[in-house]
Design a protein around this nucleic acid. Structure first.
Lengths: 259, 259
RNA sequence: AGACACCCCCUUCA
DNA sequence: TGAAGGGGGTGTCT
């Protein structure tokens, strides 16, 4: 059942991706809806990418956020991409059994993100398709976030507020306090700025080994990005080193670097 | 050499086929290019058929037109179907010497059209493959014609005009003399006349529910036509009734009507 | 196993 | 209006 330490479980998650040009600069947006009706928004941008990758990225962010909270509640994850929904719920089985070949015998594209999505996927996640631009408030808001990021515009990510039923009015919200996010990362308030840093610090001082997934959660990077960076790389104040593999999982170590 | 009664010989012929559903209602388009740069267009529709039959039909129409003019000029015939090009230039020799058996020992399909194509074929015909949807104006225009016919839409076939390099502009130019061709195309033998009827009868007696696409295949109507006919309508000996929707698909029932 | 074409669907853009 | 990123499927042959 649900983790009892959490009195306000996640009820549903909305995701959407956008891409300015396809391929082109992209953005993604995710809205986490809690049982009490409040919401929390995530979003990010990416360089040259495709619409479908952004749709996937939005879902990955939602699932990472979900798994991070460790509340095993059953939730619905809404996407307006049949590509994402069918891919994770139907096609991926065939892909894995056929060595990541498409029905036409060609390699499945975006395999890196598919594998990440698959790893994050759980029984509790109920994938739902919502028609895009059909007035669904959650989806509209995600679209707004994703599009803003894809255009390099600033947008205020909200937390703890209510989702407005009337989305069409949602103007380029308050271009003041630019909570702009550079890349796949999330920082919606002061706490969430400090939190990953202190955690990283603790891990580093304790010498803990952590998995790729955990590195992803802390850094806000995708697992694909992490593994592609090689044996040793920098993140903020830390040097991230690949230590070894264990049970199919890569283990990493953080060490405070001098800068 | 060239027939001297003709001062404006044919230079090349483009052909293409389309099929709405495959199998399903089909269409074909052919563009004849003269030496002086003017063109003449042919096109036609067919009921339940396949993409490959339509590709062949387009070539047959082009060759019939060519042989009719009796100008023995060497021409190039462009098709985007390797099936057609390889079939007529390579495979057909083996088929004829092996009694119309495929390399796998199975009967060669569409033998009727292959024989017709073979009869029309000449030394002067130089078969050329062009990649489909690659911007080739002649191929692009054929595609447009073929698709229009396959969808049951009307399209203005042109004659004497220039082929526009910019195909996307292709306006309904010269809405006079509609060289529209009804083209029976499919009912080549008794079996193909009877078959849809017996199938319709079986479906009606068994009370089976069938999809719009299946109705299209049986009746030779386009899906657009079918859905536009409303809840209940007549086809041949049957009353076609829209029963319900299921998984985004409309289900229909056939009932034998008195008439 | 390969190739070409045809179709259906969704999304993202211009 | 038209184009790209993506999937599933059929028509056909070697």
């Amino acid at each position: 059942m649900a983790d009892k330490t959490d009195s306000n479980p996640i009820a549903s998650i909305y995701t959407d991706g956008a891409c300015s040009g396809n391929p082109g600069p992209g953005g993604w947006g995710t809205v986490v809806c809690y049982s009490d009706g409040t919401i929390e928004e995530l979003g990010g941008a990416a360089g040259a990418t495709t619409n479908n990758r952004m749709e996937m990225q939005a879902a990955i962010a939602g699932l990472e956020f979900y798994s991070q909270r460790a509340s095993g509640d059953a939730i619905k994850l809404y996407t307006d991409s049949e590509y994402v929904k069918n891919g994770i719920t139907k096609w991926i089985k065939g892909w894995k059994s056929k060595g990541w070949k498409t029905a036409a015998g060609k390699p499945v594209l975006n395999q890196d993100l598919w594998e990440e999505l698959d790893r994050l996927n759980q029984k509790q996640i109920q994938w739902e398709y919502v028609r895009g631009h059909a007035g669904n408030p959650g989806n509209e808001r995600c679209d707004q976030i994703a599009r803003a990021f894809s255009l390099g515009q600033s947008i205020q990510l909200r937390k703890g507020t209510q989702l407005e039923g009337n989305v069409t009015v949602t103007k380029p919200t308050t271009p003041k306090s630019t909570t702009y996010m550079e890349t796949p990362a999330m920082a919606t308030d002061l706490d969430s700025i400090l939190k990953p840093l202190t955690i990283a610090q603790e891990i580093s001082t304790q010498g803990f080994l952590i998995t790729t997934q955990e590195v992803a959660v802390i850094t806000g990077l995708t697992a694909a990005t992490i593994t592609s960076r090689g044996e040793q790389w920098h993140w903020r104040n830390w040097e991230v080193s690949r230590v070894r593999e264990e049970g199919g999982q890569i283990l990493w170590q953080l060490e405070r670097s001098e800068v």
